[in-house]
Computed example of a mutant assay.
Amino acid sequence: MNFKSLLALFGLTVGLNATAIAADLKAGEETAGAICAGCHMPDGNSVVDMFPKLAGQHAQYLTKQLKDYKSGARTDDTMTGMAATLATDDDIENVAAFFASKEGTVATADDAKVALGKAIYRGGNTTTHLPACMGCHGTNGSGNPAAKFPALAGQHATYTINQLNAFRDGKRANDSNHMMRFVANKMTVAEIEAVANYIAQLK
């Protein structure tokens, strides 16, 4: 890595840290407790598998999703209403930073599907030209905050399956450059279920 690359990386890191520092975690906790905890739990580790775990998710990704719900770029009968109660960008950023500050837990996985899920997640499917998930989401499911690629490790399998199906069916379309719709359309039902269960047990 050359000097210019190091400077760019340092600048990106400082920028991300500044965003986190600027957020008001206390205000985020209060807002999340009043609006989000009923489904996602106070610490963001939801116990109902249709509701995503938010604990440890990147603030940049959560901020984008909440803004997309408010704008209509992403739709959900419940979340559209919930996001509308976040009146300002500061409200959104505080909630996102609060959940990002919490520690996520692993979810329940079907052990019989994990091996195939690992193979697809790490290597894709060369026959169908399905890219490996880890290319964007990391080898351990940690994601990429700068690119707004979400952390996946420990996410409920049911939620992940629902989202992949929504991308495949075109019901969810707030992915950058159609990336997730392209990927999901190349996945079989078995591959979707397997990847979701592999992700669920990552930590």
Rank of each mutant, 00 (worst) to 15 (best):
G56V: 08
R74V: 02
A73V: 00
I92C: 00
Q60H: 12
T13K: 06
K102W: 07
L54E: 04
V47C: 09
A32N: 09
L16W: 03
V114T: 13
L66H: 06
A112F: 15
T13H: 07
T19R: 11
I92K: 00
T31G: 05
A59L: 06
A97H: 02
K102L: 13
D91E: 07
D90G: 12
M79D: 03
F98A: 01
A27L: 10
R74Q: 06
N94Y: 00
D43S: 12
D24C: 00
Q65P: 05
Y69V: 05
T105R: 13
L116M: 15
D90M: 12
V106F: 13
N94V: 01
L16I: 08
A112C: 13
L62V: 04
A55Q: 12
L25Y: 05
Q57W: 08
V14S: 04
N17E: 14
T78P: 01
G72T: 03
D90L: 12
S101K: 09
Y69S: 03
A23N: 02
G44S: 09
T13C: 12
S71A: 14
S46L: 06
E103M: 11
T63L: 05
Q57F: 06
E103D: 13
Q65T: 09
P42H: 09
F98I: 02
E30N: 14
V106L: 15
T108C: 11
A109W: 08
E93A: 05
A55I: 08
H40G: 00
D76Q: 01
D89I: 10
S71C: 11
D89V: 12
K26G: 10
S101Y: 02
H58T: 04
T80M: 02
G44A: 05
A107K: 07
F98G: 01
T13R: 13
